Each structure stands twice: as structure tokens, then as C-alpha cells.
Amino acid sequence: MQTAFINICERMGRSQELSEFKRGTMIGCHLCNKSIREISLLLNIP
């Protein structure tokens, strides 16, 4: 089952995980009511 999940992620273009810092910054932005678009622009991630 795990290989199916990995294959799906690879097809979706998920090449690497976020760093701890970016993940924390993203959560902080979310808690401050930033939109998904604003967070994406701030962190330069799709």
C-alpha cells in the first residue's frame, strides 16, 4: 500500500518535503489568517 502512495506523490510532482522552518512559517501564517495565495507568495512555494 505504501508504494501506491509513493507513486501517487511522484506523479503529482511532490519532489521534496518542506523544511522544518518553512513548515512552521506556513503554520504561523495560517494561524494569522493569511490566505493560501499569500502564504504561497511569501514562501515561494506552489
Results as ranks from 00 to 15, higher is better:
M1L: 09
M1W: 08
T3W: 10
T3M: 13
T3Q: 10
T3K: 12
A4K: 14
A4V: 12
N7Y: 11
N7S: 15
I8T: 15
I8R: 15
C9E: 12
R11A: 01
R11I: 03
R11L: 08
M12C: 05
G13Q: 08
G13Y: 05
G13N: 04
R14G: 07
R14Y: 10
S15E: 14
S15W: 01
Q16T: 02
Q16I: 01
E17V: 11
E20H: 10
F21I: 13
F21Q: 15
K22L: 11
R23P: 01
R23L: 10
R23G: 10
G24C: 10
G24W: 07
G24P: 08
G24F: 05
G24A: 08
T25N: 11
T25K: 08
M26K: 05
M26F: 01
M26H: 03
I27H: 09
G28S: 04
G28R: 02
G28F: 06
C29I: 06
C29G: 08
C29A: 01
L31I: 02
C32H: 10
N33T: 15
N33K: 04
K34C: 03
K34N: 00
K34I: 04
K34D: 06
K34S: 03
I36V: 07
E38D: 13
I39D: 04
S40D: 01
L41H: 01
L41P: 02
L42S: 02
L43H: 03
L43Q: 07
L43P: 04
N44T: 13
N44K: 11
I45D: 00
I45Y: 02
I45C: 06
P46M: 04
P46Q: 07
P46E: 13
P46V: 05
